[in-house]
Design a protein around this nucleic acid. Structure first.
Lengths: 123, 123
DNA sequence: TGACTGATGTTATAAAAGCTAACATCAAAT
DNA sequence: ATTTGATGTTAGCTTTTATAACATCAGTCA
């Protein structure tokens, strides 16, 4: 019981759902997009589709605004967070590369892969 | 990182999303509803809204049909599952009642409640 | 104080997505 | 040869979403 979960970055929610989930108006949500605070995807017909991560961020934005934080400041907060994230990615990458070299020079066993079960790829 | 999850029975997905998630056509999904295999909720404007549980069930239905199982049979399968579930609910209920009585007759400490954190109720 | 800005409301108009209902198809069962 | 079960297709209508423009209103600041 209780197994598969929705990938948090999968854009599946229309704006109406997001309104209910966040208590924000469509006007607000769309405005936050123009301010580069959230980045919903679009359907072929241009309708916004949000992920759970988007919803979380909107809830955070709500809190920030309630504290009096301005949107420019909020954007900067997320920008810095993204930068740190990017740096971490890079250093992790470097670490992995080093480790891989290490292993290669010793055992030569890189490239082994276990098969991935089908069900885990559904959503 | 990675905390809040979507309640699996919260109806938030429009039929278009469900189509993509299941690979079924709107026609099929709606027909399965007429056959009492899924029970999406409706918006005020009568549009179907599905939960993750609904999506799981639709994927199951897909497998059943591929095996040649008929919809009547599928409905019966779910019916029996629901019946067993109901029985279990009832016997659990009885067990809890007995336990509560037990505790009452000894300590008299029933009715204590811990507060529920706000965030856990968002979705 | 008066103009400006930031955030949101409101309204109009158009397009996309969804709804029901009816008729069509087609393979499998009877 | 019919009937049945599952699905496709089409038409007409409703709901939801989109963009854009104008309105409001509180707070800031010269």
């Amino acid at each position: 019981m209780a197994e598969k979960q929705l990938r948090r970055n999968l854009a599946v929610l229309p704006i109406g759902t997001v309104m209910k989930l966040t208590g924000q108006t469509a006007r607000q949500i769309r405005y936050y997009e123009t301010q580069a605070l959230v980045f919903p995807e679009r359907t072929i017909g241009h309708q916004r589709m949000f992920s759970l991560n988007d919803v979380d961020r909107l809830l955070e934005i709500k809190d920030y605004l309630a504290e009096g934080t301005t949107m420019v400041q909020i954007r900067q907060i997320y920008q810095k967070k993204a930068d740190r994230q990017r740096d971490k990615q890079l250093s992790d990458e470097k670490a992995r590369r080093l480790l891989a070299n290490e292993l290669l020079s010793v055992g030569g066993l890189v490239g082994q892969r276990s098969t991935i079960s089908q069900s885990s790829k559904l959503y």
